[in-house]
Design a protein around this nucleic acid. Structure first.
Lengths: 251, 251
DNA sequence: CGGGCTCTTGATACGCCTCAATGCCCGTGG
DNA sequence: CCACGGGCATTGAGGCGTATCAAGAGCCCG
């Protein structure tokens, strides 16, 4: 089946050469499965977009028309219950691939929690491309597996961990994303509000706040600014995050 | 890279023709991505096995050497915390593909909760096969996506649903697997114990028992035997499972 | 007809939620 | 520069839902 529309060529011209070639997010995303000579074909189906903070750009239950690749900022992925209860299933940062739905509709919503930039791919076009680049399909499978593992960890957290353990897990998990930043202690940036942390960990704002206060009082962390946290005792937090309640009482 | 071992041929002989060809689970699993003429190649890397009830055949943290395809029975997939807390991330039935780990070690454990039969595939051999059958890789991706969607549903359940909603979701979810069995009302078979339901729903045995008793007292379900449940009011249960608390008070 | 399960039911405890008030930060405009 | 206002975060008091602890009941199998 061949498309007879001349559009792709026009777009390619408009963008002056392959924008994917200069993309500095490529090697952090699934796009690195495509070799440089073939990037042109990827660029044709990709569309860059900016999404302002607060905008919901994927809505649960709507027809899944596109895939997305985040190139800047952070989005929250979530599901909602009729009476307003919300569960955030994950935060998607730079390089995160979105829209692997399985069915014809999106299974979750996505909202930009800060200014976000994305590459948008139309679903049928990307599928067509995948057919020619099995390496990218393999990368997607790899990505999906990693998300599955993360989801299982989160189920363990939501089903069996205490509030303290959940917050500790969250901080340690965030720290892993940044690995060795500035200073002797790792400072974690939190683009999300307390409410969003709560919806991610299956708790309430107040419990998040209280737990963070307790960690601060116990000298495990400090809060340099409102939206950053510095871990003082990584080892202790890791133990608590792993569910070792025996260590929790120690000084 | 070619393997010079004569083993595959011997195995094929031993099994008298292709066992995959006669496999009645094939069309319910990822194996149906491989065309009949090529089934021989799949059969060579597959190894049938029987696992007695209670046996743990995948252990979290151990090197991920094999993939599994369940051909009979049910297994529980779970993760554990140091002090014995356990979270069941799912129940794997006939046709379920196991072992998509992402990393070099298994991310979860698997235990047979009744007599289980499996097809075992060595990881490197199956990967080698996947290279030749991109259709199967696509099926695996599809499977992984479906599991991801299920995992997100479960996160919503564990993070934001009440005990009643969780049990209702569990029953409705089970019912979907059987779809239209015997009688005017759907009877659900429960191969798992109350303890396992509890570990799946992030609750305790006692809460499961109390909730089931309440559903029975309210005339929403009956329990023909200890390990089966008949749903009397599907609509009401569905509403509760979906989080519509407004309907919960109605007779 | 016991022995050992799992399941059920009851009484109580505790962790987190809910509701409510206060405090902090920061942008905005006088 | 400072007063004002609105969000978001913190802190406190009390309630609720589920966990915990403890018996007892039902069932399977020898």
């Amino acid at each position: 089946m061949s498309h007879l529309e001349p559009r792709p060529i026009v777009i390619a011209k408009t963008r002056e050469a392959s924008p994917c070639l200069q993309c500095d997010v490529r090697d952090r995303s699934v796009c690195n499965a495509i070799d440089i000579p073939d990037l042109q074909r990827l660029a044709i189906v990709a569309m860059h977009r900016t999404i302002e903070k607060g905008r919901v750009f994927i809505e649960e239950g709507m027809p899944a028309t596109d895939f997305f690749n985040i190139t800047a900022g952070t989005a929250k992925l979530f599901k909602t219950l009729p009476n307003g209860r919300q569960q955030i299933t994950g935060f998607a940062g730079i390089g995160h691939f979105l829209g692997l739905a399985g069915s014809q509709t999106y299974a979750f919503s996505a909202q930009a929690i800060e200014l976000v930039e994305i590459c948008r791919f139309s679903r049928p076009k990307l599928y067509h491309l995948l057919h020619d680049f099995p390496a990218m399909e393999a990368r997607l499978l790899e990505t999906a597996c990693n998300e599955l593992v993360a989801a299982q960890d989160q189920m363990l957290l939501l089903g069996r961990k205490t509030a303290l353990e959940r917050v500790a897990s969250f901080l340690i998990g965030r720290q892993r994303n940044i690995l060795g930043c500035h200073g002797p202690f790792d400072t974690i940036d939190l683009p999300m509000t307390r409410a969003e942390i709560a919806d991610y960990l299956g708790l309430t704002i107040e419990t998040i706040s209280r737990t963070i206060s307790k960690l601060k009082a116990d000298g495990r962390i400090t809060t340099p600014t409102r939206d950053s946290i510095a871990i003082l005792d990584v080892e202790w937090l890791s133990q608590v995050a792993a569910g070792n309640d025996s260590i929790a009482g120690l000084a």
